[in-house]
Structures are given as C-alpha cells and as structure tokens.
Amino acid sequence: MQEIAVIDYGMGNLRSVVKALEHVVGNSQQVVLTSDPRRVMQAHRVVFPGQGAAGDCMRAIDEYGLRDTILEAARSRPFLGICMGMQVLIEFSQENQGIDCLGFFPGQARYFGDDHRDKDGIRLKVPHMGWNRVRQIRQHPLWHGIENNTRFYFVHSYYLYSEDNELTVGSCSYGFEFSASIARDNVFALQCHPEKSADAGLQLLSNFVNWDGQA
C-alpha cells in the first residue's frame, strides 16, 4: 500500500493534519506520522507541516537530522508544505532576529509589523487569524474542484515574500497581497491550513493524495 509520510519533528499539532489526510484517503493509502528519515524516503508522498517559530522549526529539523531528507523528498515526490512548513522551505525568515531556512525556494518570510494597516489606515490585527480568500493566480492540479477566491483558515504573523513571480500560485490580501501558496514541479506549499479549512481544505488534501506531482 502506498504511504503518505507526515514529517514529525516535534513542532506543534500534527494530529489535525494526520486526521484530515486519513479522512480523505480512505483505505487506498496509509498515512504515517514519522521522524524517521528512511520511512520518509520510502513514502510515495510527503507532507511537511509546521507551527510555532521559524527558529525552533529549523533547530528541530536539524536535531531530528531531517534537513537532507526534507530537501531530497522535495526534489523527488509529491510534496506538500503547510504553514511553517512552507516558510522554512524558503531562504530566510525575519523571525527570531533572522534565521536562515532551507533555501529550497527563493524568498523571505517577513513580519506584518506591530502597526499593520490597510490602505484606508485601519489597523489590522497580527497574527492574521481567520478565514481569508485565496486567489488562484495560476492553474494548478491542487486547485481542482475549489472555486477561485474560496476562503481558507490562516494563522500567521510572517508572510512570504519572493521576487520569483513564477512561484506564487495563490495570493491573499491582508493590507497587501502576499503569497498564500507557492508551487514548482512536484512541490506545493501553502500558508493557510487545509486541515482546518473545512470542505475546501479537504478538497485540496484530496487533490494532493491523488496528485502525480506534475504541475
């Protein structure tokens, strides 16, 4: 039976991700929560979640000896990064006085700011928490069956900024437009939480577990 590995490196609540995946795969694939590099590399698909601060995530990745495994998996099979799992794929995060990340994609995670405001000067809360619209700015198999501008659940204080315009497949507006989702080849990553985004999120996860990794 094909396996979907959810990488466990001790960061936050991975149960939600596992439960949502189990809900969409039925009996056709097995979901395994693992921190074992060999197990990850045996899996047909890999999900890389994450919560908390970038510094802690990077430290945990190295403590678990998973850095090379994550990069190798992202080069070789359908790979889904979620929330902090997206942010640490890029080069650098401003969080924790600045921290180098995995550098798989070009870009930075930047802080919304303590005095974040919209165009009309109205103050916006940080973290950006709740249901916001995701604009599908490029076609992707993982958007299948999800209407453009559908709301997903977000919770984050840092947003992804990249000068590589080809990378962004979904954008979101919170004071300004930022990358809500990036993709290249067999990798798809998103800032929001599909496992907590009701039907739209389950649809996206279902698309992922059936995805051949071709963009």
């Binding site: 609540n13 149960r15 939600s16």
Partner: peptide, 27 residues
C-alpha cells in the same frame, strides 16, 4: 477532531504545560 475540520479550541482546567500538550495531541 476526527470528523470536524475547522479550528477547535478547548478551555477550562488548563493549568499546566502537560494539559496543553494533551489537548493539542487529542486534536
């Protein structure tokens, strides 16, 4: 948490780090 895929918050009696871990692990 196995059936409802929106954010869930639990309050009441959360006094220690272990209480938090238990609730998060439960979903």
């Amino acid at each position: 948490a196995s059936e409802v895929f929106i954010p869930l918050t639990v309050g009441g009696g959360i006094r220690e780090i272990a209480d938090i871990r238990r609730m998060l692990n439960a979903g």
